[in-house]
Write a protein that binds this DNA or RNA. Structure first.
Lengths: 212, 212
DNA sequence: ACAAAATTAAAACAGATGTTTAAATCGTAC
DNA sequence: GTACGATTTAAACATCTGTTTTAATTTTGT
C-alpha cells in the first residue's frame, strides 16, 4: 500500500481526460498513456473503469461536500436560534462559494469542476446516480433551507427553480467552451469572481421571483 | 428515392435512443434493431453514424428555428418601429414557447427536446459544434435583443446571464430524470405549462437583476 | 539477506464497434 | 417480361474496447 504514486497519476490523468472528453470517449489506453502507467494498472488498483470514475469524483467531492454541509448547517442553526427565515443569498453563497473557490486552486480543480457538470448530465443512469448519491444529503439540506427562505412559494415551485439553478450551474462549470456561441468581436470574458457574483445575483433573483 | 420509410424508421429510432441513452451509448446494432431495418441501412442512407446524428437534429431543428427566428424578428421590428426597447419577457416567450409547445406534440418530440439538451452539453466538439452551428443565427439574434432590452447592463454581463439561462434550459429539457434528486414524500411534479411559466419567470427575473 | 507479498509489465482475451463488401431482392420503366 | 437501378441482406472486416492472465520486477517484513 506504500506506493500511491501510481494511483495518484491515474486519478489525475482520469480527472483531466474525463473532464475534457467525457467518460465514454476516454479509453483506458489513452488514460494510462497520459498517466504514464501500464494499462493493467487501472484494473489492478481500482477494479474497473466504472470504479475509477467513482474514485475520481469521490476524491474531490467528499471534502467539498463537508465544507458545504458545515456552512449550510451553520445557516440553519443561526436561523433556528434567531427564529427567523434564512436569507436566500446567504444560502446560495454558502453552497456555491466553496465550489468556485476550489475551482481557482489549480488546473486539476478546474477540470474536476467541469467533470462534475458532466456527471450531473450524463446520459447513463449509472454515472449520474453515482454522482447524485454523493451529493444527495447536501442537496436535500439546500432544498430545505430554500423552502424556509421562501415561505411564500409552494415547495414544488422551489424544487423546480432549484433545478433551473442546478442546470445553470452545471453548464457554467464548462465555461471554457461557452464562448463559442457568439463569435462576436467583443471581449466577453469575465473573471472568476465576477462569475460567482453574477451567478448568485442571477439565481437568487430568479428564486425570489413572485409566484404567478 | 421512392421509399423513405426506412429512412424515417431510422430517424425515429435514433431520436428515441439518442435522447434516452446518449449518442455514444447507442450502437448502430441497437438502433437498427429498434428501427426494424438492416444494420447496413444506416451507412447506406446516411453515410455514417455522425451524419445520422446530424440528420436527426436537423429534421426537427430547422422548422423550429424558423418559427423562433420569425417571432424574434417580429419583436425586433416592432421595437424599431416604436423606437423603444423590447421587453425581456416577450423575448423569452418568443424564444422558449415554440420549443415547449413542440414538446407537447408527441413522444418523439419530447425525446427530441431532451436530445437537444444532450447535444448542447456533449463532451465532444464534433457533436456540440454540429448543434451550435444550426442555432447560431437564432442565438445571435436572441443575444442582440436581450442587449437592447437590458441597456443598463454591460454586454458581457448579458452574455454571461444568457449562458446561465441556456444551461438551465438544457437541464430542464431532461425533466423526466430530474425528480430523482430529492426523494421526498412530496408530490413535486409540475405540468408542462407551469414549467414554461416558471422558467420564464425565473430567467427573466434573473436577467433583469441589477448589476452589482 | 532472504522469503513473501505487492506491484508492474507485456501479451492475449473475448466481445463490441462502425464500416464495407458482395450477393440477393425488389421496384419500376421500357 | 425483361433489364436495370435502387435497396436490402448477411457476412466479413479491421479496429477498438475493458478485462485477465502469466511472468517479471520491486518492495516489504523479518
Amino acid at each position: 500500500m506504500a506506493n500511491n504514486k501510481t494511483k495518484k497519476c491515474i486519478l489525475d490523468a482520469a480527472e483531466k481526460l474525463f473532464a475534457r472528453q467525457g467518460f465514454y470517449a476516454t479509453s483506458l489506453r489513452m488514460l494510462t498513456r497520459e498517466a504514464g502507467v501500464n494499462l493493467a494498472a487501472v484494473n489492478y488498483h481500482f477494479g474497473s473503469k466504472e470504479e475509477l470514475i467513482k474514485a475520481v469524483i469521490e476524491r474531490r467531492i467528499l471534502p467539498l461536500n463537508k465544507i458545504r454541509l458545515e456552512r449550510l448547517l451553520n445557516i440553519k442553526d443561526n436561523a433556528g436560534a434567531d427564529d427567523c427565515s434564512p436569507d436566500v443569498r446567504e444560502i446560495l453563497f454558502a453552497f456555491f462559494e466553496p465550489t468556485f473557490e476550489f475551482r481557482k486552486s489549480g488546473k486539476g480543480a478546474q477540470d474536476f469542476i467541469s467533470l462534475i457538470g458532466r456527471a450531473f448530465s450524463d446520459p447513463r443512469d449509472t454515472v449520474r446516480k453515482l454522482f447524485l448519491n454523493m451529493v444527495e444529503s447536501v442537496f436535500q439540506l439546500l432544498f430545505e433551507l430554500l423552502c424556509d427562505a421562501l415561505p411564500s412559494l409552494p415547495k414544488n415551485i422551489v424544487y423546480l427553480r432549484l433545478n433551473f439553478m442546478l442546470g445553470a450551474m452545471a453548464h457554467s462549470m464548462n465555461m471554457s467552451q461557452m464562448c463559442q456561441l457568439i463569435p462576436d468581436g467583443l471581449n466577453l470574458k469575465v473573471d472568476s469572481s465576477t462569475l460567482v457574483e453574477q451567478f448568485i445575483m442571477f439565481t437568487a433573483t430568479g428564486l425570489e421571483a413572485p409566484y404567478e
